[in-house]
Amino acid sequence: MNAATPVRMPAIYMSHGGPSLPDDPIWPGELARWGAALSHPTAILMISAHWEEAPLALGATTTVPLTYDFYGFPEHFYRVQYPSPGAPDLADKVRKLLRGPGMPVHDLPDRGLDHGAYVPLTQMYPAADVPVLQMSMPTLEPKQLMDIGRRLAPLRDEGVLIVGSGHFTHNLRALNTANHVLPFMAEFDDWGKQALAGGDVDAILDFKHKAPAALYAHPREEHFVPLAVTLGAAFDELPTQQAVIEGYWLGMSKRSVQFG
């Protein structure tokens, strides 16, 4: 293969933790090993639970300040920097792939990466040398998000790592520093593990009705539905997937998976 030829990248869904993730004794190493095991991407397209915007929006394509979209944390978490290069060429490609009736795309050039994007990337690609583009979720409807992922799938052949970033279970009332896992969190996580292993895409898209304790594991669905974008981007390779990270953080599942 010519050295200039991009390597086809996987599509991934990751649980992204919170601003304090780097302080965890285990999770940073898991993310670092994951990043090291992947081929070096030409760019990263990030879809985070923390950016809902309709019509669909693209964030900064230059290096701008991060979006510290959290409250009440110690001051040093607001001083974290991640000066990744912008990805204007990737933004052009995304616009072309998504162009069509009912899919307007607009730009927010001052919108920096939020913590659902930069926190895991500081561990996976600490050199901040990969261009990153963040894209909003214009809807929380899983089938529509999956369709967006399918349109974006050709980017993988150009070396782009497509990332759905959320949390496999997410109920802030269940957070606890002892990492005690409530039964409904474990039930949902096990259901999701089995659904992914069996390639049961229909069940995953209809998780609110098919999964046990769905409304307890996800009182609001924004942290689970980025998985639908990943599934769309990996549609031709379903059900093949690899569970890269498992276990719990502060009582929430940190399950993260790779397709391809």
Rank of each mutant, 00 (worst) to 15 (best):
V225L: 08
N171W: 04
A153G: 08
K193W: 13
A197G: 07
E158M: 09
L227Q: 04
D200L: 11
Q144L: 11
E141T: 13
T230G: 04
G159C: 08
V225W: 04
L231T: 05
A178V: 11
M146G: 02
A233W: 03
P219D: 14
D206F: 11
D157N: 10
A153Y: 08
G149N: 09
F188I: 01
P126D: 10
N179Q: 05
Q134R: 00
V229A: 07
D189L: 06
A217C: 02
T230M: 05
A195K: 12
I148S: 07
H167A: 13
E187W: 02
V130E: 04
K143Y: 14
S136D: 12
P183T: 13
A211S: 15
V181H: 15
Q144P: 04
P131I: 03
F235N: 09
H223P: 05
K143R: 15
L152V: 03
H167I: 09
R173C: 05
A214I: 01
P183R: 13
E141D: 14
L152Y: 00
A233M: 04
T177A: 13
R220V: 13
F184C: 01
G166K: 12
A127E: 11
Q144T: 11
A197I: 06
L175K: 09
P126G: 07
E158R: 09
K193I: 12
V130P: 00
L182T: 12
G192D: 10
A217V: 00
I204H: 05
G199H: 14
V163Y: 01
L172Q: 03
W191I: 04
L155S: 03
T169Y: 08
F188M: 01
